[in-house]
Nucleic acid binder design. Structure first.
Length: 479
RNA sequence: GGCGGCGUAGCCAAGUGGCUAAGGCGACGGUCUGCAAAACCGUUAUUCGGCGGUUCAAUUCCGCCCGCCGCCUCCA
């Protein structure tokens, strides 16, 4: 299994620190707003990576933090006249609503800054002791970048390169412009915790170092996040962590590419931030997830609402295949040999899927294999009037296994549950049976004007009628 | 200015130093159907931004050029 390591800038074979186990940490959102499409991509990417490790039989410990103490939260809370901690708690809840909708598994631990002040302070103290950090008369603590020899190894630049950028604000309290805050002294009215350096709050970067080390230990396997975190956030995490422990920090660094909206950067000033909940409402979670995995995770991905049709149709194709499979199980037979070729093809698909995911989590290719599986199922059912039950069950298991990694459809007890199946109620089903019965009578009498009218009008309200040799089918959707 | 990425069919998007350049959407033809829909079968890039170079062989490696984008500041 190969994965691209930002630290070495090449693909490397994945070797876990402890056989059979994967310890991974992903930087989670700052809880000051509803999550947007960019957050969603990071969530879905790391969720998929995690799911693939599980598929491969690893025991995975996955930690994802919430930043609930932060300048943005304080500002937002001030605007809304709320308590910052309360505001953050609210958006943590909202986060779970959206992440659950996207079928993102909950992390094993979701640590929060506000609950880890002792660990953070302890770590800052160690950095001061070991000479990597200094305090100021105002009660701030800064990390001294020039005192950490490896600084810049993740982002591939030297401290002097960075100065050339010269977009760094000059802060009189710092000894060097590159130094960054570990502890910020509190201004009046800001949330503050007591510390050896005076009342204040942690700087942004230190939380992830303290919390990842607490839950995963030194030298854990994978640390990840959005590409924008490479510098300065992750660079600073490495400096702090390795400065404090004297041990290598995470061994593999994974970063996902950015989302653009209609070829433009997603930003507040352009006003094109797409919230996950709006997109889920517009397209459904399966389509969104399929879309997010349709490009390699390191590439930039452009979201254009006008181009989502392909994703919608693609997901429909998968659903149709799944429905055809379920229907065929009802008429399947035992102990024929007609499924042998089919089963052989299923095995090839499994290999192709694993090869794709083994190669730096190539979800685009893996998803193509899922489409091939759908084609294979459809084709087998088409050419086989009496399909073999065992073979169909194997196909269903394989479909669920692929889906278990990609997470496009929700599953319960290892079985895929389609949205409309979950959302349809008995009354609707009964009414439709009635209407379809009337339409069938009209069709028998060759009164096609009536039968077509029923079909057209149902379509207009979002019910699609399909006449098949196996009887009449209906489903929700628009075609 | 520094660092990095991208440019593959109408659109989205994998991929490889040489065997038929995946897959989805779209389009076209056929099967099925009362007609549709869905599904199936088939067609749809002699070619991978441009120009050079390396090589027996390059879309894939190297150089230059053109175009697009990201990071360097809070940001997934």
């Amino acid at each position: 299994m190969d994965l691209y390591n930002t630290l070495t800038r090449r693909k490397e074979k994945f070797v876990p620190g402890e056989p059979g186990r994967v310890k991974m940490y992903a930087c989670g959102p700052t809880a000051y707003n509803f999550i947007h499409l960019g957050n969603a991509r990071a969530l879905v990417v790391f969720d998929t990576i995690r799911r693939y490790f599980i598929y491969k039989g690893y025991r995975v410990t996955f930690v994802q933090n919430f930043t609930d103490v932060d300048d943005k939260i304080i500002n937002r809370a001030r605007e809304e006249n709320m308590d910052p901690i309360g505001l953050a708690a609210k958006y943590v809840n909202e986060y779970f609503t959206d992440a659950d909708a996207l079928n993102v598994m909950r992390a094993d631990v979701h640590p929060k800054v506000s609950e880890h002040l002792p660990e953070i302070k302890e770590m800052i103290g160690r950095l001061v002791e070991r000479g990597f950090a200094y305090t100021t008369p105002e009660g701030d603590v800064y990390f001294s970048v020039r005192d950490f020899p490896g600084y810049g190894k993740l982002s591939g630049r030297t401290p002097d390169d960075m100065l050339a950028g010269a977009r760094v604000e000059i802060d009189q309290r710092k000894r060097d412009t590159l130094d960054f805050a570990l502890w910020k002294s509190a201004k009046p009215g800001e949330p503050a915790w007591g510390s050896p350096w005076g009342p204040g709050r942690p700087g942004w970067h230190i939380e992830c170092s303290a919390m990842s080390l607490k839950y995963l230990g030194e030298n854990f396997d994978i640390h990840g996040g959005g590409a924008d975190l490479i510098f300065p956030h992750h660079e600073n995490e490495i400096a702090q962590s390795e400065g404090a422990t004297g041990q290598p920090f995470a061994r593999y660094w994974i970063h996902n590419g950015f989302i653009t909206i209609r070829e433009e950067k997603m930003s507040k000033s352009i006003g094109n931030i797409s919230l996950v909940r709006d997109l889920v409402k517009a397209f459904g979670p399966a389509v969104l997830r399929s879309f997010l995995l349709s490009t390699h995770y390191r590439s930039q991905l452009d979201f254009d609402p006008g181009k989502m049709d392909a994703a919608v149709k693609g997901v429909n194709r998968l659903k149709t295949s799944l429905n055809l499979l379920e229907e065929a199980l009802g008429r399947a037979v035992d102990s024929t040999e007609n499924g042998a070729d089919f089963e052989k093809n299923l095995e090839e698909l499994r290999e192709r899927f694993e090869t794709a995911m083994d190669d730096d989590f190539n979800s685009a290719l893996a998803q193509a294999v899922l489409f091939d599986l759908a084609s294979e199922i459809n084709s087998y059912l088409h050419r086989t009037p009496q399909p073999e039950g065992d073979s169909l069950l194997k196909a269903r298991t394989l479909f669920a296994a692929f889906n278990g990694v990609l997470g496009i459809f929700k599953e319960e007890n290892g079985r895929i549950v389609l949205e409309e199946e979950a959302g349809s109620d008995d009354l609707v089903a009964q009414l439709l049976d009635l209407i379809i019965g009337v339409r069938q009578e009209a069709r028998k009498k060759k009164d096609f004007a009536t039968s077509d009218r029923i079909r057209d009008e149902l379509k207009a309200i979002g019910i699609i009628i399909e006449d098949t040799p196996q009887g009449v089918r209906w489903k929700r959707g628009q075609t």
